[in-house]
C-alpha cells in the first residue's frame, strides 16, 4: 500500500541476476511533484531500479508500485502516466525525428488529431522542434538524447524516469539539458533521475538517494547552497588577446586572473543559468577551454562519505 501522495514506492526490493545481487533490500518512495536523484557509481543498481520501475523485470523479493500498481504484472496501466528513458537506447538512422515521436503518440493511443500537436509540444519542451524533419542519423549525440527525452514526453506523462540523461554529453550540452529538465520540474512533473554525476543533482533535484552496491546508503535532501555560493572555476589558454577576453566578460563583471604565461583563470559566480550564459559567450569568442571545475559543495562531500572513492 502506497503512502498518500506517493507515485512510486519500493519496499525491501531485491533483484538478482544469477549469482549477482544487483539490488539488496532497497526501499524508498517518491511523492507527486518531487524531483529525486538516484546517485551512485557505475554498477550501483541505478539502471536495475529503473528496469524494475518500468516493469521490464520483476523483483526477486520485496514489492514495488507505480501509481499503486505492480509495473510488471500491470504494465500498461501502471505506466500510462510514466515517460521513461532507460539504458542507452539507439535510434534507426534513416527515420525522421517526427517519425519516432509520432509513433510514440500513436502507440500511447492519442487521438489522431492530437498526435501532431503533442509531437510539436514534446519536441518544443526539449528544444528539438527545428529537427523534426531531420534524419535521426544526422543528429549529434546531444540532439539525439534530447529527441529520446522528447519521445518520453509525448502524451505529457506525469512521472519521468530518466536513467543517466546527461551521459556522454559535453559540458555545454549537459548544462543545456539540465536547464530543460529543470523547466519540466517547475511545470510540476515528478522526476526520478539516475546519475553518477554529482553536478546533475543540485540544480535539478530536491532529494538525493545514494546507492552503492545495490544498497541504499542515504536518502536525504539535496539542500543545495544558494546560487551565489556555487562557483565554476575555468582555466583558459589565451589565444585571443586578454583585452578581448575582458571585453567579452565585462557584462557579467567577471575579471580574468592570469595564472602563468598565456593562461588565465576565471571564477564564475551565480547559478547554472548565468554560468551557461558566460560559457556560451566564451566559446563563441573562440577562447580554448583547458579546465573546468565546479568548486566542491556539500553534496560532493556527502557523496564521498557515503559512496567513497573505490567505485568502478
Amino acid at each position: 500500500m502506497m503512502p498518500p501522495g506517493a507515485v512510486l514506492s519500493l519496499e525491501k526490493v531485491e533483484r538478482t541476476y544469477g549469482e549477482n545481487r544487483a539490488l539488496a533490500g532497497v526501499s524508498f518512495t517518491v511523492h507527486r511533484g518531487e524531483a529525486v536523484a538516484l546517485l551512485g557509481p557505475n554498477g550501483a543498481g541505478k539502471t536495475t531500479t529503473f528496469r524494475l520501475l518500468t516493469g521490464l523485470v520483476p523483483p526477486s523479493a520485496g514489492s514495488l508500485e507505480v501509481f499503486g500498481l505492480d509495473p510488471f504484472t500491470q504494465r500498461s496501466h501502471a505506466l500510462s502516466h510514466v515517460g521513461a528513458v532507460v539504458g542507452s537506447p539507439g535510434t534507426l538512422p534513416y527515420l525522421k525525428v517526427s517519425d519516432l515521436l509520432e509513433h510514440v503518440g500513436r502507440v500511447r493511443g492519442l487521438p489522431r488529431a492530437q498526435v501532431l500537436g503533442e509531437v510539436k509540444r514534446a519536441a518544443g519542451e526539449m528544444g528539438v522542434s527545428a529537427h523534426l524533419g531531420r534524419a535521426l542519423g544526422s543528429l549529434s549525440t546531444g540532439q539525439e538524447r534530447r529527441v529520446l527525452l522528447s519521445a518520453a514526453l509525448v502524451g505529457d506523462p506525469e512521472v519521468l524516469l530518466l536513467d543517466e540523461p546527461t551521459l556522454g554529453l559535453d559540458p555545454v550540452a549537459r548544462a543545456d539539458l539540465r536547464g530543460l529538465l529543470k523547466d519540466l520540474v517547475h511545470q510540476g512533473h515528478t522526476l526520478l533521475l539516475s546519475t553518477h554525476l554529482i553536478e546533475d543533482v543540485g540544480p535539478l533535484c530536491s532529494r538525493v538517494l545514494f546507492l552503492k552496491n545495490g544498497r541504499l546508503e542515504g536518502d536525504e535532501p539535496v539542500t543545495s547552497p544558494p546560487d551565489g555560493a556555487i562557483r565554476l572555476r575555468l582555466r583558459f589558454r589565451i589565444e585571443v588577446p586578454e583585452e578581448a577576453l575582458r571585453l567579452t566578460l565585462r557584462p557579467w563583471g567577471i575579471a580574468p586572473s592570469p595564472v602563468g604565461p598565456g593562461y588565465v583563470d576565471l571564477s564564475i559566480p551565480g547559478g547554472e543559468g548565468a554560468q551557461v550564459e558566460v560559457l556560451r559567450a566564451l566559446v563563441a569568442s573562440g577562447a580554448p577551454l583547458l579546465e573546468a571545475e565546479r568548486l566542491q559543495d556539500d553534496l560532493t562531500q556527502r557523496y564521498l562519505e557515503r559512496i567513497g572513492r573505490e567505485e568502478e
Binding site: 521490464l56 504494465r75 505506466l79 500510462s80 521513461a84 519516432l100 509513433h103 510514440v104 500511447r108 529520446l148
Partner: peptide, 9 residues
C-alpha cells in the same frame, strides 16, 4: 533502438 518502444504503456 527498441528500448523506447518497449517502455510504452
Amino acid at each position: 533502438s527498441h528500448g523506447p518502444l518497449l517502455l510504452l504503456p
